[in-house]
Design a protein around this nucleic acid. Sequence first.
DNA 1: GCATGATCATGC
DNA 2: GCATGATCATGC
Length: 462
Amino acid sequence: MIYKSRSDLMLKAAEAEGMTFGDIDKSGRILNERAKGHLGQIVEESFFEYKVNSKSEADFAELGIELKVTPVRTNKNGTLSSKERLVLNIINYMDEVDKEFETSSFWRKNKELLIMFYEWLPKVKRADYKIIKSYLHEFEESDLKIIKKDWEVIVGKIKEGLAHQLSEADTNYLAACTKGANKASKREQPCSEELAMQRAYSLKQSYMTALARKIISKQTLQTITNGKELENFTFEEILVSKFEKYEGKSLEEISRMAGIVPRIGSKNFLQVFISGLLGIKGTKLDDIDEFAKANIQFKTVRLEPNGIPKENMSFKNINFTEWMNEEWEDSWLENYFSSTKLLFVVFEYKETEKENPERELFFKGIKLWNMPLTTIEGKLKPFFYELQNLIKEGIELRPTVQKKRTIVNNNLPKAKANGICHIRPKARDGSDKVALPDGRMISKQSFWLDKEYISVIIQENN
DNA sequence: GCATGATCATGC
DNA sequence: GCATGATCATGC
């Protein structure tokens, strides 16, 4: 079949809504549960009656439209999320380096995407997944500006001979995700002898989630930048500029300037503070378009006069059984730090608590950061396996009685052991425990970044 | 009820 | 004063 126009194609595509892959498949391949990534091919062949190709032009070449079939899932709280990033074409490091954005393989192939969202459900056969929405995606102007800068970051890294250090969190919406049979899938790069992991362009999972919520759930998000600003500045620069005028000011002054009353210590302090300074009071940070799409998470940092926070920084609580059974590549740890950007909102005390217990907090600035791949691979990965072995061997628990409470010492990795991260408790009280794989109970534990490491991150300039 | 950000208490 | 483990407070 040849589709003469986009409307022809979209009329046909709309017929798929409500159909299952079992309804669509004429080849019988849908029954092969192990065949991964063939859902798109089945739709292409059985539904659109197109021959599958892996050419560099778009699937519907005469229309310049690329077909993508991608899963969404419903969360416990009823919201919708994309189940995965949307993987696009593989990056040929050797070729892409000579291109402009307009002539890049990314843009040639993915300018327009026919996205068919299907609903993924646990324990349901592939044949019974249902297509819920067919949607012709064209990048809106402000997204495209950010994506173009993302592309430049990716190609810039290739030009520096750093293709082997590409990381998904380097960019905002368009990312270079690993793609290959296994971690041995490597290829040459033009400006370095080192072989680099094979990677493909992808739209981040967070971007796809925002898209699915807009298209399927009709959710609207609020933007804080616009196409005109993005013409001349990166998203990071715009973000910094929005906070600049508050730098060096005390919380009290800022409250007066911005007309907000953030109560330090309150749970929604960050929400109130950031949205207040951005001038979008009442909007949750998660409902801000750019933060949602780029998967930017927020963390407050309070530096003591010595430039180091008083406390380490906690993240998610640890599921020891998961940690023991998972491979690094599938772990929360790998996933989180290779795909999340952290926006540190930095405050400082100018006096120690001893000098002045009533000390005031001053806003120092913001820092948008993601963990470099070298650190993820060099520090986090060994840490992951070290802890995995420890769990397998059985974590030591040594109860001792203190004055007023029972302390259970353990041999989990301590702060400063690797200069980056450690495990320490985060629980409600002494009885807030979690089971180890061997059945013993331990106070709930969390993953923490060392405060000294936070201090170094904040001081880096880039 | 629980996750999460924040902070405390004790012993060396 | 710091390391380590414990616990609080809030908000969904």
